[in-house]
Simulated scan of single mutants.
Amino acid sequence: MSFVHAKCSVQERRVLWYTLLNDKPISLPWCIGGDFNVILAPHEKRGGRPFAIAEGMEFMSFMEEARVFDVGFSGASFTWSNNRRGRARVSKRLDRFLVNGACLDLSNAISVLHLARHPSDHAPLKISFKERSDHTPRPFRFLNVWTTKSELLEVIRYAWNQDVSGSPLRVLSSKLLATRRAIQTSNKQHFGNVFDAVRSAEMGVQRAEEAMDQYASEECQVELSKAQAELRHALSIEEQFWSQKARVKWLKHGDRNSRYFHAVVRQRRA
């Protein structure tokens, strides 16, 4: 845990960013909280001079270099006010909590609450680390990767066309339930557990490489090529899965980035 009270000028805050980066843990969870004396966007301010993008650039640069992000909040929108009246009143969100990716491994739910400012001009912040209950039913999510199987449309059509009696609402509910179950069954048959498939494909490539190193025959080369193709396919499905989960559409090329997608998913969830 790092607690900060930043200075008002850009030059003085640079010393703080430098000091924090020197204290940055390599792989441990890290949470930074306090008064940063700077905002990131126009909606974090009301009153006073218009927001200038340059105001938040140094703060954004620090967050990027430190690999931390804002966990959000509930409560009042602003944590500081000059307590004046009328047009002279200025309010800003100067106080916040930042965490790194490893911090999310400690808890499934991190929440920040802005408490009442009185009698100070700054609001106290309450941060909570809680575990989510795994007993709650999970909602049905349609995965775009399912559409790569041409049989999916026929599976949906067959489930939807089943005869159901009762009121229109009961018919609709029954058809939706039957279609969901049919899709889930199809998913188990064609995809199964996305992550188990990747691990299995990796082991297949490893076995094929070991055989190739030992025998170096044409048959071993063919088996290695097949195993590599299966691994590429499994990785492609995993990447599509995390891409949809993270709702990241701009990353179309480059190296496999599942760890990045996973971090974005956890950040959105937090």
Rank of each mutant, 00 (worst) to 15 (best):
S217Q: 07
R269H: 10
D35R: 09
E218D: 03
L21A: 05
N82C: 04
A6Y: 08
Q184P: 00
R138Y: 10
A201K: 00
I237Y: 02
V155E: 03
S167K: 05
G34Q: 14
L28Y: 08
I53H: 11
S107T: 09
E209H: 05
E230A: 07
V194C: 08
A109T: 01
A88R: 05
R247F: 11
A54K: 14
R87I: 09
R232P: 00
S27H: 09
Q214K: 12
V99L: 03
S128D: 14
H135L: 15
F78T: 09
R84N: 09
G101S: 06
A6E: 06
V112R: 05
V205E: 03
R141A: 01
F195C: 10
L125K: 04
E154D: 04
Y18F: 15
E44L: 01
R132S: 12
S150N: 04
S111K: 13
Q162N: 05
A211G: 07
K130T: 10
V68M: 08
W160K: 09
F36T: 03
D163I: 13
M60F: 15
S200L: 13
Q184R: 06
E154V: 07
F129S: 12
D70M: 01
Q162T: 13
N161V: 15
S107W: 04
I127C: 13
E151P: 00
D213F: 02
W160Y: 08
P124V: 15
F97D: 01
F69H: 05
